[in-house]
Structure formats: C-alpha cells, structure tokens
C-alpha cells in the first residue's frame, strides 16, 4: 500500500543517456503499465525503481520517502523477472518463503502465509518440487508467490509473460489482474505487448526512446494519442500516416494525418478521399485486413467486417473515412488539438 513517484528521472550508461527525464505519479493501489518498443528503456526504468540500477539524476519516492540511495532490500518492493529468476536449488516452498526467512518471521506465520499464497496460485501440489520440475506457467506462479507473500508496498513486473505461449499468456494475464485487484498493491508492469497493456492497465505509459510520450487510461490513449509515435504504436493493425496533400479536402495546418484502419472503408474507384490499388487482403474470419498501395507508393491498411465482399487484388479502389476520424499531427509529431 503506497504511492510511487518519479520526478525527472534520468539514466546515463557511460556517455549515452537512455532515460531522458521521466515523471510518473502512481496512486495507491493503482496498476500502471509501461509499454514501448524494445530498447526504449522500460527495464532500465523499472530496475531503477527496484534499486538494481543507480539513478543518474531525479528523484524516486515510495510513499513520499525518497529511496534513490536505498538498497533494494530496504525499499519494500517485490519484483517478478522475465526469466522468473527462481532459486534452482530450493523447493517451491523455500523459494516462496526465502524472503520471509531472511526477515526472521516465526515459522508458523511463514507456513501460514505460504499456504495462503499457494492456494491463491494453485501451487499446493507442487510445494516440495524444484523449479526445474515445473512447467513455465507454474514457474511463473512461483515467482508471483514469492512476490506476494512478502506483502510489499510496490510490485514490479518486467515482462513476466513473454516466455509463455499465447494461450497461457491470456490466462496468466487475467490471473495477474485479478490478483492485483484482490490485494490492492500498487503495481508497475513493463511490457512491449500493447494488448497486455490495454487489458491490464488502470493507466498506461507509452515510452518512446527514453521519454514517456503519454500517460493515461488505455482507451483515452487509444482515442486521443498525444503523438504520432503513440498513434502508431497503440492499436493493431497500426495507424496509417499520410501527408495532407494526398487527401482530397484535407484540413489545413497539419503536417501529417493518421487514419486508423478500423475507421477507413473502401469505396468505388474515383470516389472517397484517397485512391489506392489493392495489393492483397487477409481474411481473419470476423474481420478482413485489406492492404493497398497509394499512388505515392506508401502502403495503407483498411480493416473491414469479415462479412463484406473482398475486393480483387490489383483492383483500384477509393478510400474514405468519416469526418473527424483523422488524427492531426504537426511537423514535430505532436497532436494538433481539434479546433
């Protein structure tokens, strides 16, 4: 139970700055997801909060207490690693109770807490096994168990689901969300998977090359991306970007327009706001993705209902979208507010 505050946090490795000043305020019990492409500094940011990496400048505070110079064990946090980082020579019980034993908790209380956690995570049959005798999903649960028994003020997750297969990932995602709601522990969760971010987050932070481009509720971020990067990163398939000059009746003042594939639709050739030629289409069942090429050579994707007729490859088409569906950006990639 705590708040977490980052103030203008920067990180430099040697001469290269990888985090360029990040500000975050996490409320008590809130689930924050940091999402961004590989190498943008998500792990680095998380590791600074954990105390595994020094902070070059700025301030990190947990529950109002500055923790910059505290060792990891003095910060009252728990972390789940991408590779789980279980202790290979200890049983599941010993793995989960390791932190409690170090804190010199009485034996009965340790047994009780482990029992509660094991029940919650369905680990009861495996308590005497070694990590190598567990499946990936079970190891993941042990790592979660190790984090929750200590009842820390803050949970940190570094891509905890990326080593699991697609189905298990969906299941664990729901479990993590339910668990966090249950325990009400402030959480910071790092992922490069936007679906995870959208489904888990109370609020999400989109990171781009060491900068937090946007912080907000998932649906707000989707509906109102603050930058071109965010518009391109959140939403699948990715937003189409076109220069206004290529669009009939384009608004003035914008340097680039973003059109989400789900907002665009195909029309007869010669009508609509733009013209293109169909290159191929992917029928996914409920929906169909139609890939076109514009006269400029740039690609454009339209997402339409699976029941609609599919255009033939090589056929010229018009592209249209409702008024106001275009997202406008200035030359620096910042969103231009609608007048």
């Amino acid at each position: 139970m705590a708040t977490l505050t980052l103030r203008n946090v920067k990180k430099r490795f040697g001469a290269t700055e990888v985090i360029h000043g990040v500000d975050i305020d996490v409320d008590d019990g809130e689930f924050i997801v940091i999402v961004g492409p590989s190498g943008c500094g998500k792990s680095t940011l998380l590791r600074m909060v954990a105390g595994l990496e020094t902070v070059t400048s700025g301030k990190i505070a947990i529950d109002g207490r500055r923790v910059n110079d505290l060792e990891p064990m003095d910060r009252d946090i728990a972390m789940v690693f991408q590779n789980y980082a279980l202790y290979p020579h200890m049983s599941v019980f010993d793995n989960i109770s390791y932190g409690l034993k170090i804190a010199k908790m009485p034996k009965e209380e340790i047994a009780e807490r482990v029992a509660v956690a094991a029940k919650m995570l369905q680990l009861e049959p495996y308590l005497s096994r070694r990590p190598r005798e567990l499946s990936g999903g079970q190891r993941q649960r042990v790592a979660m168990g190790r984090a929750i028994v200590r009842k820390p003020s803050v949970f940190l997750f570094d891509e905890p689901l990326s080593n699991l297969d697609a189905k298990l990932r969906v299941q664990m995602r729901l479990e993590i969300k339910a668990l966090q709601k249950d325990l009400g522990i402030t959480s910071l969760y790092v992922t490069h998977d936007q679906v995870e971010a959208m489904t888990l987050a109370d609020r999400m932070i989109v990171m781009n090359a060491g900068v937090a481009d946007q912080i907000g509720k998932p649906l707000d971020v989707y509906a109102n991306p603050a930058t071109e990067f965010v518009a391109g990163f959140i939403g699948s398939p990715a937003t189409n970007f076109v220069p206004p000059a290529a669009v009939a009746g384009a608004p003035s003042g914008a340097a680039r327009l973003g059109i989400r594939p789900e907002h665009a639709r195909l029309t007869d050739a010669g009508s609509g706001r733009m013209q293109g030629v169909v290159t191929f289409s992917e029928a996914l069942g409920a929906e169909t993705l139609i890939h076109l090429v514009l006269p400029s050579g740039a690609p454009f994707t339209v997402r339409q209902d699976g029941a609609l007729p599919r255009p033939v490859e090589g056929e010229p088409c018009g592209i249209d979208w409702p008024d106001g569906a275009d997202i406008r950006f200035d030359a620096d990639g910042r969103r231009i507010a609608l007048p």
Binding site: A50, G51, L52, E71, P72, M73, I77, A78, M79, F81, N83, A85, L86, Y87, P88, Y98, G99, I102, A103, R146, R150
Partner: peptide, 21 residues
C-alpha cells in the same frame, strides 16, 4: 544468472546471506 542474485537482493538478502544461501 544475475537475475537470481538480484531476486535474492530484493528478497532482503545482503551480500553475506546471498553468498551463503
């Protein structure tokens, strides 16, 4: 693995405890 040592540090183990356990 480095992360195993880091996990122990987060679990509260200082250098000697980490070494021993």
């Amino acid at each position: 693995p480095k992360s195993v040592i880091e996990a122990a540090a987060i679990d509260g183990a200082r250098f000697w405890t980490r070494f021993r356990t």
